[in-house]
Design a protein around this nucleic acid. Structure first.
Length: 169
DNA sequence: AAAGTGATCATG
DNA sequence: ATGATCACTTTG
C-alpha cells in the first residue's frame, strides 16, 4: 500500500532513515510497474545546511524543495545523471532525502537509470501520481548504518561532518 | 586519476 | 552571452 501521506510532512532527519526498506515504485510508459526497495538515503536539510541545494535560497531548480513534503525533486548532476530526491517537511522548509541506492542498484545515478527517471519527473506528487510513488509492504530493516554524506566537499566542515547518510546493512 | 556531460545560476 | 560549478559513473 502507498505510504501514509502524513509521512512526508515529517522532518527529513526522521524521514530519510524511515525511507529505508520502503518500495520505490515506477510505472513505465509501456505500463510496466517496477518496485525496488530503498537501501540508502541522505538528508539535505534547510538553508542553513551548506550541502543542501536550497542553501542559496529559492531558485527555479530548487523551488519544489521549498514546498510541502510529498513531491519528487529530480535534477541533473554532472551533465549525465538524474538524481531523485523525496521532498519532506512542512511547506516553507526546504528539505529532501536523496535516494542513493535501491536493492541491487548502488548509486543514485543507477537508481534513476534503473527506473527510467529523468528531469521530466521533477515535481511529481508522490501521494497521487500513477507514474512515481512509494509503498510500504511492512518490511522492517534489521539494522541501519549512518555515516557522513557523499560528494559535498564544498560544504562547511561542520556540515560535512554530519552523519546524515543512512543505509541498510 | 580523470574524463565525460549539460542544466543551472551568478556575472556582465 | 559566458563561465564555474556540480548530491556521479566509467574507464584506464
Amino acid at each position: 500500500m502507498r505510504i501514509d501521506p502524513a509521512f512526508y510532512a515529517s522532518d527529513v532527519l526522521e524521514a530519510a532513515p524511515a525511507l529505508l526498506g520502503k518500495l520505490l515504485c515506477r510505472r513505465l510508459p509501456d505500463g510496466t510497474v517496477l518496485r525496488l526497495r530503498i537501501t540508502e538515503t541522505e538528508a539535505y536539510r534547510g538553508q542553513d545546511d551548506t550541502a543542501c541545494h536550497a542553501r542559496a535560497g529559492k531558485t527555479r531548480r530548487t523551488a519544489v524543495m521549498f514546498g510541502p513534503g510529498g513531491f519528487s525533486y529530480v535534477y541533473l548532476c554532472y551533465g549525465i545523471h538524474s538524481l531523485l530526491n523525496i521532498v519532506t517537511g512542512e511547506d516553507g522548509q526546504p528539505q529532501a532525502a536523496l535516494i542513493r541506492a535501491v536493492e541491487g542498484r548502488p548509486g543514485p545515478g543507477r537508481v534513476t537509470k534503473a527506473l527510467s527517471i529523468d528531469c521530466s519527473l521533477n515535481g511529481i506528487d508522490l501521494r497521487t501520481s500513477g507514474l512515481l510513488w512509494l509503498e510500504d509492504d511492512g518490511f522492517v530493516c534489521p539494522s541501519i548504518l549512518t555515516g557522513p554524506r557523499v560528494g559535498i566537499a564544498y560544504a562547511s566542515e561542520e556540515d560535512r561532518g554530519r552523519a546524515w547518510r543512512f543505509m541498510v546493512l
